[in-house]
Structure formats: structure tokens, C-alpha cells
Amino acid sequence: MINVPNILTIFRFFLVPTYLIVYFSDAPSKLYWSVAIILLAGITDVVDGYLARRYNLITEIGSLLDPLADKLMIIAVFLSLLITHKISLWAAFAVFLRDISMILYSTLFHLKGKKTIPANVMGKLTTVLFYVALFALLFSVTGAQTFLWFVIGLSYLTTLIYFVLIRSANKNDSP
């Protein structure tokens, strides 16, 4: 079902290539424009979640696409940081492995007609902390690498909790 929250989520998908184009451009203030695009993605994420909950506009497709849009933006930013040597290959691999497995797992469950669950508080906190780490890395803040590894560890714990919750939500269904 197409509604305002879902339109905002779809808009976030378009922000992913926009970010990459701007980040790798020769524009004079490309770093600031890149950060503005990331912030716009974050703001639209908050707004679409608020509208969906406030006006009971939560849809199955929105529950699937919303975290996918978040993960694709994070993957794009991490990819840009890897290419520009602001993060190590190991950090990028850890993030890509986690996000790609979550995308595949959620998609598989959705395609099998199983229940998916919206992000919980831990998932939202992890996303916010990833953005803090990304901004710190983009602006080369001291300690950003250490903070990133803390967030990566937290993200794996959050992922484990998500997998347990989604399996629990589907425990009465056939495997």
C-alpha cells in the first residue's frame, strides 16, 4: 500500500545513489553536501516512522523497505569510506556482512510469507550510533575508529536479538 511513510521510504532509496554521486564528485563542498544527504535520509526515516505509528499507517511492505533503505545508505557510506581509506577493509567487511545478512534474512522471511518485525529500540539506537560513527569518520575525529568498532560489536548483538525475535514471531509457522 502506498502511503506517505512508504513514499518517504522510497525517497530514501533515491538518496543512496545521490550520496555516492555527490561524495565522489569534484564539488567544492562535497563533504558537507554528503553529510546533508545523510542527515536528510535520517530525518525522513524519523518522520516516516512517526507518521506510520501516529496514524496507524504501518504496512508489511513498509516494515520490510524501511530497514532496507537504512541499511543501503549505511552500506553506501561505508563503501565510500572504504574506497577513500577512512576505514579498514575489516571494518567494512564486518558492517557489510551484518547488513547484507540482515537484508537477505528479512527478504527470505518476507518471500516465504513469514512475519517480519519492525526495528526495536536497540536496532534504532544502533542505527543512530552508526550515523554518529560515520560522521566522526567523515570528519576524521580522533577516536572514531575505536567508536566504530564499539558500534559494530553492538550491531552484532542487536542483530542476534532481531533474529531471535523474528524466529519467535514465526515459531508456530512451518520452517
Rank of each mutant, 00 (worst) to 15 (best):
M102K: 09
A136L: 11
A133S: 13
F109M: 15
Y156G: 03
I166N: 03
T158H: 12
W149Y: 14
Y156W: 15
I161W: 09
L104R: 04
Y162P: 00
L157D: 06
L157Q: 11
T158R: 08
S101R: 09
F150N: 03
L129V: 06
T158W: 01
L160R: 10
S155W: 03
L165F: 04
T127H: 06
F135D: 03
F163C: 04
S101I: 09
K112S: 10
T127M: 11
G153Q: 07
T146M: 14
M122T: 11
L108Q: 12
Y105A: 06
L134E: 12
M102P: 00
K112P: 05
P118K: 00
S140R: 15
G153V: 02
Y131L: 13
L165H: 12
A144P: 01
F109A: 08
V132G: 04
I103T: 09
K115I: 07
I161K: 08
M122Q: 11
G113R: 05
V141F: 11
L129H: 02
V164A: 13
I103F: 11
L157F: 15
W149I: 03
L134Y: 02
V132S: 05
T107L: 15
G143P: 01
T116V: 13
S140I: 14
A136K: 01
S101C: 10
Y156S: 02
A133V: 00
G123A: 09
L108V: 13
L148D: 01
H110P: 01
Y105G: 02
K114T: 03
Y162F: 06
A144W: 00
L129Q: 04
L138M: 15
F150E: 00
V151C: 03
Y156F: 15
T146E: 14
V141G: 04
Q145H: 14
L160M: 12
V128S: 10
T158F: 02
N120Y: 03
Y156I: 08
L104P: 00
I103Y: 06
F150C: 14
T159K: 04
M102F: 09
T159F: 13
L104S: 10
S101T: 14
Y162T: 05
L108C: 07
L129P: 02
I161T: 04
V132Y: 04
F150S: 08
S155D: 03
Y131V: 11
F109P: 01
M122F: 13
S101Q: 10
K115C: 07
M122G: 10
V164Y: 12
K124S: 05
I161C: 10
Y105H: 11
F130M: 10
M122K: 07
A133N: 04
L125W: 02
